[in-house]
Computed example of a mutant assay.
Amino acid sequence: MQTVRWGILGAANFARHHMAPAIHEAEGAELAALATSNPANAAPFAAFAPGLRVHDSYDALLADPGIDAVYIPLPNHLHLEWTLKALAAGKHVLTEKPIALKAEEIDQIIAARDASGLLAAEAYMIVHHPQWQRAREWVQSGEIGTLRHADAAFSFDNGADSGNIRNRPETAGGGIRDIGVYTYGSVRFVTAAEPEDLQARIRWENGVDVWAQVTGTFAGPLGQFTYGAMTSMRLFPRQEVVFQGDKGLIRVAPGPFNAGIFGEARVELHRPGLSVTVERFPAVRQYKLQVEAFGRSVREGVPYACPLEFSRGTQVMIDRVFAVATAI
């Protein structure tokens, strides 16, 4: 098996605790290099990845001929720039969500991907997790009858951390860009539907959205259904997605997005007569699955579960939410 040699731009905490270990442990992947201007920041990565090469700049890592793919966990406002630079340097690239800040920016990445023949994708890990694949299978096979409504919630409280990039407008922070990609994109993934009409209310603090409520209707192969979503960076932690039909209900909770970290990864199918089927996935690591899926696409040309076209659809929805929102 050809090994995909990975480099990481920046020593972000998320990369250190989640994606770097996933790359190191994934089949067919090697964590080969890290770019950071502070050598001390590289020590935790080198501790589990012996032989790690440390570059003192992002450009130096992109020039490294021993790197096949780059993972980008930089602040949101830097994603587009460095994704395009990675492709121009001849590297496959996996960039944290949101991969861009506007749908038309993703068009730029699609054009660069197509011109280069390389794989570029957003690190939208949930589509690789079997709990979401099962939810999609159940919904699309009619296990809950006709889908009538979907609702999603994702909240946490980082109000005390004013320096957090999510709380800073200059780094393109805010709850919708950080977690709206989950409450919006997960419903799109499961139902293959797109929003028809949307209404939104947003609460702003210091130029970033800290609470948002979105309602509307979706339409697609399963017909039309109503939709509601809540995201917040100022509420007690909660994660839940529900798909409700006329003959049953599917609940993905309590850890639909941070599976195994926020809560147990499981999906529930509720049907008449108090029948409940629960599937649990305690040992599944979605970041590792993401790396392995990316590697198969690079090596074998296997279609990637989250192509840029899917990410663009979620960004279109985000753009619409901001456009129609009323401030409260």
Rank of each mutant, 00 (worst) to 15 (best):
L94F: 11
H79N: 06
R299P: 00
L80E: 09
N13L: 07
A11F: 07
A193K: 09
L62N: 06
R136G: 00
S162M: 08
N13M: 11
E137M: 02
M1W: 11
V324G: 08
P130Q: 04
E268Y: 01
N13Q: 14
A121M: 05
M125T: 12
G28F: 09
S186G: 01
T226W: 02
D197L: 10
S311F: 05
H149M: 09
V291H: 05
W211H: 14
A46T: 00
R320K: 09
V252D: 07
Y184G: 00
V252M: 15
N41Y: 11
F281A: 09
G301L: 14
L118K: 07
H79T: 01
E105I: 02
N41W: 08
G207C: 09
G220D: 01
E122H: 08
V302D: 03
D151Q: 09
R177W: 14
H270W: 01
T217V: 14
E170G: 06
L235W: 05
Q108A: 13
H77M: 04
F322Y: 15
A120V: 01
R5S: 13
V284C: 07
G145Y: 07
V127P: 03
E122A: 06
S297F: 02
N13S: 14
A60F: 10
D107H: 12
F189R: 03
E25S: 14
A33E: 06
H77N: 11
E104F: 08
N76P: 04
H55T: 03
R320W: 06
D114L: 06
V291W: 02
L119W: 08
Y227Q: 02
V321A: 04
D246Q: 02
R296Q: 10
F154P: 00
N258H: 15
A121K: 04
Q290L: 12
F48I: 03
I165R: 12
L235F: 09
G28V: 04
M125W: 15
F189H: 11
N164W: 07
A305Y: 01
Q239H: 04
E81F: 05
G90E: 03
P303S: 01
N258Q: 15
I8L: 12
G260N: 05
T36R: 07
S186D: 13
A115S: 10
V284G: 06
D246H: 11
I23M: 09
N206K: 15
G245L: 09
Q224H: 13
E268H: 13
S162P: 02
A40M: 05
P65Y: 04
A135S: 08
